[in-house]
């Protein structure tokens, strides 16, 4: 009884801390949404964070006059494709590096680390040359392939780290039960690695969703623009349509918020086989 009471008090402290941090962390986002929901003429005029009642003029303007809706679809398509492919390829590799011994694997792991270390801005021109050679400039494949490849190294690293914490006894038991390496990986290891997989998936998805540099260079046609590039149509050289810009970015964040709410659930599920551990 006493323990329960103490827990309740502790929990209310936890809530308070979470709410305050949550608010502080979200200040710029509240500022963004606040601006989006102001009447267009008030976007800059009004210095309050939020205004009541909200005004949706900016949003209707965006949908009726621009192709931003299309950009949201493109981004979703790119990010989902990249995430699914990346999870599959990276978990295979991460599993192999975690389970197989040999110099090739450790060298590969170091190479993956090195690949992260070269500043992205210098990769632009050579990447462009490659994709031009492949005839993929101005197609969504160019960004899908580059995001996939750019996200692989860290995904493999992270997943290898998570697989390392799963005891090899599990693999051995599966082998005795007659599972081959692939079905051990697929049937036994993957299901109990959901928290790790989902954390990497979240990261890959958001990296792809927010990427601007490559997208702005590879995707020059209006019909294939992703959201980060689409947002730029509201930015003129030395002035911007702040109200519409903020509304468009608010629109861009909503699908990701939904994705986050769904994806984070898997962060804590899937550990049914945890009893073997330790």
């Amino acid at each position: 009884m006493k323990r329960k009471n103490r827990e309740r008090i502790n929990h209310s402290i936890v809530y308070a801390v979470l709410i305050v941090t949550g608010f502080l962390i979200n200040l710029p986002i509240i500022s963004m949404m606040g601006t989006a929901l102001k009447e267009p003429s008030q976007a800059l005029m009004d210095t309050n964070l939020l205004t009541w009642p909200p005004n949706f003029r900016n949003f209707s303007d965006i949908f009726s006059h621009t192709t931003f809706g299309r950009s949201i679809f493109n981004s979703a398509f790119v990010s989902v494709t990249v995430t699914v492919l990346c999870m599959f390829i990276a978990s295979l590799a991460g599993y192999a590096i975690s389970r197989f011994k040999g110099r090739v694997f450790s060298w590969y792991l170091t190479l993956l680390l090195v690949l992260q270390m070269f500043p992205g801005v210098l990769l632009l021109i050579p990447l462009f040359v490659i994709f031009k050679g492949l005839g993929l400039i101005n197609t969504l494949f160019s960004v899908i392939l580059s995001y996939l490849t750019l996200n692989l190294p860290f995904s493999i690293w992270m997943l290898k780290g998570f697989f390392d914490t799963i005891p090899t006894e599990l693999d051995e038991a599966a082998t005795i039960d007659g599972c081959g390496p692939f079905s051990t990986y697929y049937r036994i290891i993957l299901p109990i690695s959901l928290p790790g997989l989902s954390s990497v998936a979240i990261f890959t998805f958001l990296n792809s969703w927010n990427e601007y540099l490559l997208a702005s260079i590879f995707l020059r046609k209006e019909s294939i623009r992703t959201i980060t590039v689409g947002l730029q149509q509201f930015v003129q050289q030395f002035s911007s349509q702040w109200g519409q810009l903020m509304s468009a970015s608010t629109l861009a964040t909503i699908p990701t918020l939904i994705f986050l709410i769904v994806a984070q659930k898997y962060l804590i599920e899937g550990l049914t086989a945890g009893s073997v551990k330790g």
Partner: peptide
């Protein structure tokens, strides 16, 4: 877009595109 236009042009021109 104006954002990063400098690179957009330089990359394309340097790569023959």
């Amino acid at each position: 877009p104006w954002d990063n236009f400098y690179n957009t042009f330089l990359t394309a021109v340097t790569s023959g595109a």
